[in-house]
Design a protein around this nucleic acid. Sequence first.
DNA 1: ATGTCTCCACGTTGGAGA
Length: 263
Amino acid sequence: MKISTWNVNSVNARLEVILNWFREERPDVCSLQELKCIDEKFPYEAFESLGYNIAVHGQKTYNGVAILSKYPLSDITKGLKGEDEDEQARYLEAVVDAPHPFRVTSIYLPNGNPIGTEKYSYKLRWIERLMARATQLLALEERTILSGDYNIIPEPVDCYNPAMWVDDALFQTEVRAAFRRFKNLGYSDAFDLMPPADNRYTFWDYQAGAWQKNEGIRIDHHLMSPQAADKLSAFTIHKATRGFATENAKASDHVPVSVEFNL
DNA sequence: ATGTCTCCACGTTGGAGA
């Protein structure tokens, strides 16, 4: 079972490079973030023709998350409890009805910049709402995987120059502590169990030649329940994807991150 | 290097968000 997560930065603008990657890697399940389209504009047919079942939680212009699966999806939940009238499409959860089922998510945690604003306090509140759901899910003792763009740099080593990130919402002490709390709760970061030897970054900014200079950060994560972590067999950051472009589509600023399980 | 990319608006360039 291969499960991937990818912030695609517009599923329609990026469609050609996304489909190329899917044809190459053939994930059983893939969470997408930053669709930047309403449900009706999601390119269903393109993914259905590759054999995927689709759950979409879209929104006009911003945010938007999806889950694609070669197995049927059930128990689909859009959004987190709380923050009434929260219209930001940032959370999607579903059960993958495979012979060994998985509960999977697509998480697009708020960026939160600049610090000291309502955007930052919204990020902190959103983390608490995710924490509440993660706590509930842990009690189910299922194979659960919380995948997505967390917009959290866990450790100084996870960015190219920590000094440059001290005033950024992705690297605040309380945000990093919150990421640790998920782990203390009982979730394992797939990266920690199988750190790649060559690269740890999952995002390179479009600006200032960040990709060319390899000035990246690690913000896309797979947090696994114990029942899932027991079966982890591989962890891959698809770094080369950051450099791929076609005639009709440029690269996302994030790359896909995959985990595999032997069941 | 306020450097790039995407989406949207009663559009034809500029603001917002990342």
